[in-house]
């Protein structure tokens, strides 16, 4: 059975992706758009709709969904609504992995090396965080460790920018750091898709234990939760999904905080039932943000990651401030 919330979110998904395919710098009347959509329009329109706008909208949705689900799962595991791939340095580590391959890999590298490097970076960060989570106990300390990981990955990325041999590699590296879904093709998405699917499977398997974990680790253990397996599944799931998302779009922050926060009241704050709607909401948010990015009349096109941070960072501060007193 599909809940009313998930039904409405799916509806929003279809509408937002259709809007993303219809709206853009090339104005296209409804008649021409639908003709192109169903494959009977002019060649130019069909290229715009199917090869530029549709893959871009799909990429935005997939990236948002991966980040929304990863954020919801990490929040469930760490029992804190501020945990998120961006804040914890997972996205930055993934972007660093991808940048290293781009910087040192050269032309010999197979295409799949980029998503694999991004996922390796994401997994390294999530594993480090989970290991720290077992040892330190305090979630505030853990988030500070995440901030440290994020800063360090950012510093190495800055070092690569600093040492970039020519303007072309500089632009490439900048794209990974800022985050964008411009010029993405269905091939780029297909390359990351298997990792993404695997990530979603692991996150799905960890959903039920996350509800029990909300009552504390000892109680969860007594309820029959395998704590070790749950941690491993969330780490693998969030690492694979975030890594795949970064491989498509670079580092885009704060979606993983905002999406779960928006849907939580509608699922009675249950971590297990937050995962799916958080994923869909994350996707819709990025599709809508990307439409905004394309419509804003700025001299150079705004990067999606920049806009996400401009909107998401104040929301992060707001959520953190409202939690004063909680550990």
């Amino acid at each position: 059975m599909i809940s009313r919330l998930n039904f409405l979110l799916c509806l929003a998904t279809v509408i937002s992706i259709a809007a993303a395919a219809a709206i853009g710098s090339t104005t296209m009347p409804a008649g021409r758009f639908f003709a192109a959509l169903f494959g009977v329009g002019e060649t130019g329109d069909m290229i715009v709709v199917w090869e530029i706008r549709a893959p871009r909208a799909l990429a935005a949705f997939i990236v948002g969904a991966a980040l929304g689900a990863s954020g919801a799962a990490l929040q469930g595991l760490l029992r804190n609504p501020l945990a998120e791939p961006g804040v914890l340095g997972v996205s930055a580590s993934a972007a660093l992995g991808a940048s290293l391959v781009l910087f040192y890999g050269g032309a010999m590298m197979p295409d799949v090396a980029v998503p694999i490097a991004a996922i390796a970076g994401a997994l390294a960060a999530t594993a480090l965080l989970t290991f720290a989570a077992i040892r330190v106990g305090s979630v505030v300390t853990l988030i500070l460790i995440g901030v440290g990981i994020s800063s360090f990955a950012g510093a190495i990325a800055a070092l690569l920018l600093n040492l970039a041999p020519n303007p072309f590699s500089l632009a490439d590296l900048l794209n990974w750091t800022l985050g964008t879904v411009a010029n993405r093709s269905f091939d780029d998405i297909a390359l990351a898709a298997p990792f993404l699917v695997a990530g979603f499977v692991f996150l799905g398997l960890s959903a039920r234990p996350l509800s029990a974990l909300g009552l504390g680790e000892e109680t969860a253990l007594s309820l029959g939760v395998d704590l070790k397996r749950t941690r491993i599944f969330v780490v693998l799931g969030a690492g694979l999904a975030t890594g795949a998302a970064v491989a498509i779009a670079g580092a885009i922050g704060f979606v993983g905080i905002v999406a779960p926060h928006l849907v939580r009241p509608f699922v009675r704050y249950d971590p297990a039932r937050t995962l799916v709607p958080a994923a869909i909401a994350g996707g819709v948010i990025l599709v809508l943000a990307d439409i905004g990015v394309r419509l804003l009349p700025t001299p150079a096109e705004l990067r999606l990651g920049v806009v996400a941070a401009l909107i998401g960072a104040p929301i992060f501060v707001w959520i953190a401030a409202r939690r004063s007193g909680a550990t």
Binding site: G214, L215, L223, R268, Y269, P271, R273
Partner: peptide, 25 residues
């Protein structure tokens, strides 16, 4: 008795059936 999330009473009690396959609600 930490409550990481403001879940409702019924859902907490339902977690008691976790080992019998019941999720909240």
């Amino acid at each position: 008795r930490p409550t990481a999330w403001p879940v409702i009473v019924e859902d907490i009690v339902a977690l008691g059936r976790y080992a019998y396959g019941a999720t909240t609600t």
